[in-house]
Nucleic acid binder design. Sequence first.
DNA 1: CTCTCTATTCAGAAATTACCAAAACTACCG
DNA 2: CGGTAGTTTTGGTAATTTCTGAATAGAGAG
Lengths: 186, 186
Amino acid sequence: MSVHTRTSPNSLTPVAQKFILHWGEMGTRWGINRTVAQVHALLFLSPQPLPADEIAETLAVARSNVSTSLRELQGWRIVRVVHVLGDRRDHFESIKDVWEIFRIVSEERKRREIDPTLRVLDECVQEIKANPQGDSYTRERLTDMLEFLTAMTGLFEEVIRMPAAALKGVLKLRGKVVTMLGKKAG
Amino acid sequence: MSVHTRTSPNSLTPVAQKFILHWGEMGTRWGINRTVAQVHALLFLSPQPLPADEIAETLAVARSNVSTSLRELQGWRIVRVVHVLGDRRDHFESIKDVWEIFRIVSEERKRREIDPTLRVLDECVQEIKANPQGDSYTRERLTDMLEFLTAMTGLFEEVIRMPAAALKGVLKLRGKVVTMLGKKAG
DNA sequence: CTCTCTATTCAGAAATTACCAAAACTACCG
DNA sequence: CGGTAGTTTTGGTAATTTCTGAATAGAGAG
């Protein structure tokens, strides 16, 4: 390391800053750690993969914090590590296709949040069937809920598996989707 | 108040208990206060509207906490106050239709979480257009994101406005929806 | 093998959030 | 007025989450 001070912090354009800060806030509302969301936003906007220390510098958070955040983002598979010739450091890049990001995050959230609920609901319904001690109202409510969630997630699974190209087509149908579905279903 | 101890806590069946506890846990993952979610679960399972003090007793939480939770649930419009003849206390009941609950909560979350993001994204794109200082990559990324979110919420709005009956039909189409949409969109 | 650069892990500090009890206040009613 | 309901606010504690700095581990160059 030279006697010079470190390279000045990677400055962000005002717009990039605004987006990253907002993304961080939205992250917290979505149960996602603010820093994790900010790191993702930064990588999403970056034309090149970035090394961890540069991310830490740019966002002004601890290096270790970045390490943890990157690990989590990799766990979600929306960020991956790449290598740059002549640089020993890991570099990270985000998926850029927004539909792909949405798909991956949705599936993961479903797996973590909906599936356990489906299991519990199913257990509840089983238990109440095996031992119906006058709580027929509870049974009715839980059965309703279970059926609804099962159907809803089934539909979700279908849509989420659509390739990006097909989705673009569907999105162009705006204003007609409900009519179409309504007719076929009616 | 008599010298007798208060009426014994409203006991819950094991199944009701299990569901309420789980719903509370899921609530926290969804950014919803645990108590709020538990109160909702209790009301959802209750055949009759319940007064606040009974809820507090059954869930073993502070009366003031129940008051706050009920207020929040009413804010979401999935719980409403009703009155029982001969009882001056407010009683509270939950909407029982699961599709209705889902619809209302989704719309509210969209309003609180997606709409602000759309605004910020739009502002960002405007600013970058007005002052394009070499960050064409940022512009591209943000435009992508904005278009995707706009299209997605448009579709969402359509689906969410479907009456419960129409939905049931669509849900029966499982396995065919994507095919249908694919054909029309292709 | 040692030195340097890099990445990860971990204990504790700091911040945030959840919850409660009590008090103050409104409102209604007999 | 006095009694019952209900809400809001406050002050405080407990629990959880987030973040950091220091320690640790690994990998490659010399």
